[in-house]
Nucleic acid binder design. Sequence first.
DNA 1: AAGAACCGACTGATGGTTCGGAAGAATACG
DNA 2: CGTATTCTTCCGAACCATCAGTCGGTTCTT
Lengths: 206, 206
Amino acid sequence: MSPKLIDKTEKCNEIASAALYLFAKKGYAATSVGQIAEAAGIGKGTVYEYFPSKEDIFVHAINAWMMDLINRMVEKTRNIENPVDRLKAFIEMVKDVLNVEEPDPKKLFADIDQQTFMPGGAFYKRRHIIKDMRAAFCDLVVDILLDGVSKKVFKPEIARDVSKIAINLLAYLDGICMHYLIMEEYQEFEDQIDFYIRGFVDYITI
Amino acid sequence: MSPKLIDKTEKCNEIASAALYLFAKKGYAATSVGQIAEAAGIGKGTVYEYFPSKEDIFVHAINAWMMDLINRMVEKTRNIENPVDRLKAFIEMVKDVLNVEEPDPKKLFADIDQQTFMPGGAFYKRRHIIKDMRAAFCDLVVDILLDGVSKKVFKPEIARDVSKIAINLLAYLDGICMHYLIMEEYQEFEDQIDFYIRGFVDYITI
DNA sequence: AAGAACCGACTGATGGTTCGGAAGAATACG
DNA sequence: CGTATTCTTCCGAACCATCAGTCGGTTCTT
């Protein structure tokens, strides 16, 4: 009637986790379902007991990865009292994400864009997932900024445009990270961010 | 001895141009060599008389596209006297690029990143092409800024950090364009840029 | 007639998805 | 207690579709 019961959710996570590692290592297209199965220690057919398609594995894996990322960022910056330090800690985390070697995050980013923009891509009809992720990052920055305003460290007038400012800061970080990933000069990358953030902090602090 | 002579270069450009249209419409992976041949009005085998591989078609097509883009930008901004207007004209062109409908540029950008970051990608071992393109854009911005300094419209002290400033501006534009492409809200996009540029111009003008 | 230009059928490899059935565990029954 | 039954879980061989790239031959120009 009801033999061997398995925690489907847990197994899904295991498969997605193994898959994420491969996606980050070789890219989505170059990773076959057979390799995912092998990495997860199961048979190819079994994968399809837990996911209807390769695309769904990607969506699940990326979703978990991004959620984890944003959670860690919120956690790490939550208890920093000084708003300027908190902002800088956030930026430091953004920089750190890029320097993970083994499962290479830049491949994940490239694949996410690909799957978001191409018709038929895994995220093409689930763009809301990507949008929600961006919104979560934006919320964190807004929170840091408003915290600074309430502590009388940042100018009160930035509260009015706080979401514009947050989006612009995130856009800059996005762009400069991309610049670094292409140009591959870490020192320049750090200098650029320092230069920018100095101006930014000057602009928002009282 | 020397029969039918064809302008190889010209034919290469024709094929690449037909290919670019398809790449921008359906993406690199979803475009087959057969479709490129059909679009160019030739047979599949003929394509291989002009290009050794599909990847080379992509490199050639993207190269031509980016060159044309940068040339048009230089051309359009060359004769604007007022440095602030010139800067704004440049930004206007960047915005315009995103709004080309038919051969969708965002798919090209996604494919370029893909082919640059993935081992074995068309640009993976030719990253210098992408780097050079970015450098060309940077040069244009630097030129605009220094022109403004020499015309006593922009602060003289920005000359020292002019290349840092240019890269940061381009990074911001990159990032905010990506933001727009994902979020798909044009009004917000324009407001964000306006907001940023107002601050930027304030910061650099005397 | 020589060689440049062209062509599309063919090849070979790849990889997502399906499927028929094996292995195993809980229950039902004799 | 042992056997049959039933349903879950697992599996990898086989199926199928898709192309990038090749090749042998045709057409065209000089």
